[in-house]
Amino acid sequence: MDITFSSDLSAYVAIADVTFIAFIAMTLAGGLVAILAKQLIHAVLGLIISLIGVAGLYAFLGNYFIASMQILIYVGAVSISMVFAVMLARPPEEVKQKSMRLATKIALGVIVGLFTAATVGSAVFAHRWSAAAKVTSGDTPVEIGIGLLTRNVLAFELISLVLLIAIIGSVVIAKRGRGTGKTVGGEEL
């Protein structure tokens, strides 16, 4: 699919390009912070920045609905629960690891990351992607909703089941981990 603009919109396109690059920079910089930061809370904030950048890219792909959902679910729910967990668990500084093992791990990580990037990248860029033959439907929330409740209804129900189980499971796990029968004022906390 080709995106084209009438030529009197060149300034607009330039601004859009700059914004686009800014979003990509946000995504990548946030991702870097997320995997390199020493403090866990910085890593989570890096992830949040990265997620917002990806949401911007979704918007550039023309799907504002998914962009909104990205912020609503990822930033609004997932990241906040992560920050919350970081605050609750107060994890120790991660640099306390044995430096020897850490170095091996980092090397391993770099190798695996680069290898994946190289193989998948070569596969991606070897192929010339072309637009599909015909467009059967739009990408509005209405269409997505109809799709969710007709063609993908099984997956949809499964996802909701998974979410339900996840909620129950996390409640059970977090509750059981709480102390060993510690009681205060006669009632178990």
Binding site: I106, V110, G113
Partner: peptide, 14 residues
């Protein structure tokens, strides 16, 4: 792709 490799790197090294 870069996000994927970042993620792989982090998953292994952290």
């Amino acid at each position: 792709l870069i996000l994927l490799s970042f993620g792989l790197y982090g998953l292994i090294s952290r």
